[in-house]
Nucleic acid binder design. Structure first.
Lengths: 206, 206
DNA sequence: ATATGTGAAAGTGTTCACAGCT
DNA sequence: AGCTGTGAACACTTTCACATAT
């Protein structure tokens, strides 16, 4: 019917917030207006309508969107990706925070492994996995491929780990290493730098 | 001389990467071209020139930018904010990861306190601070005000902590809580949701 | 009456391409 | 000759405002 339009990154990034609001609603609430949804997700109502329109989700004029229908739709959009198996490399505080993060499993992700270079950590439980030797990365991932990788190793080790993940077929990587990484164009590397976030915040506090 | 032009958020977010590249250069390197800087920071050369231009930093045509001068300039831009005292609320893995993060101090931030509600943690060293009872937040911050706050508590506690920080005068807050927070317009809340990052990544892995 | 759906405008950020300086 | 500095084009996102459907 409608063209196979590509959904904007910014729109996708808001879906978890919409879902979170919807899941917190009372069961007897059947419909929500763009205004209510906007308040619940801390965005403008026009954004909500634009997002829904872009996603091909329609409501009823004069009424709003059906909660059940909408929730379903959004879940399918978000969970419809191929990639759900996740591997974490680096079992420091940050790696552990991610492995133990509750929202992880409920968002539909499956932690298939967490690796570190420190033998003292091997065997420790971290979320649904046990910490293993990073030397086994290639061997393990041959059996259980992952499509998403999270890198929480120190800056000096990050490029090596990234390269190894990429050659294992992991094409989507979230890096927390405070360093610039190079990678082929067909690899999607997202970078979250905690110090940078803080510096940007501090700059605009002026 | 030039108008007091406002620098774009996106530009500020790139400065740490430029600095990181510059600081890794050999001492004898006197100048860098926009092309070199672009390669080092994984951005396009035109972006570098635009950023420098927006920041009021000028190079020499035919030569490039002076490394010493540039480094100085960027440091001043980033560190020139008023806000450098940081308080962390929530001493879970994520809070500890942040407190122990080395780049923290070298980026010019000063951790004045880390708080939690769990008595088992009180007194434990975390970076430059010791974990203290969150009940003492108001008392402690009266003596040593902070201008930046980091919230790494569970979703249910986040709004309360945010409100308390705001009433203590903390107007710039970085939240890792996986929930939508409401706040006055004069408070700058930046949100980093690890599950959302992963979901966006997974979506575009399709 | 009420709330959607969307063209059009505005805002923000990136890229091009080249004139101008060294 | 080489590299900066920037106007202009482009792309992406948000916001406005209102015709349209129930």
């Amino acid at each position: 019917m409608s063209a196979p339009k590509r959904v904007a990154r910014a729109t996708i990034a808001r879906l978890p917030r919409y879902l979170s609001y919807l899941e917190g609603l009372d069961e007897h609430v059947r419909t929500v207006s763009s205004q209510q949804l906007a308040d619940g997700a801390a965005v403008k109502d026009a954004i909500v309508r634009r997002d829904m329109s872009d996603l091909g989700i329609t409501g009823t004029r004069g009424v709003g969107y059906e909660v059940a229908d909408l929730t379903d739709h959004l879940h399918r959009k978000l969970g419809g990706g191929v990639a759900r198996n996740v591997v974490i490399v680096g079992a420091g505080h940050l790696g552990l925070a991610l492995a133990n993060y509750a929202g992880f499993g409920s968002a539909g992700f499956n932690l298939v492994g967490i690796y570190d270079a420190n033998p003292d950590l091997f065997g420790n439980q971290a979320g649904e996995a046990r910490i293993a030797d990073v030397a086994n990365l290639e061997k393990d991932l041959a059996d259980t491929p992952a499509s998403l990788g999270i890198v929480t190793v120190p800056a000096g080790a990050a490029q090596d780990i990234l390269d190894r993940l990429v050659s294992l077929g992991v094409k989507s990587i979230l890096s927390f290493a405070p360093t610039t990484l190079s990678h082929a164009d067909d690899v999607d590397v997202r970078h979250v730098d905690l110090a940078t976030e803080l510096q940007v915040l501090a700059y605009f506090a002026k």
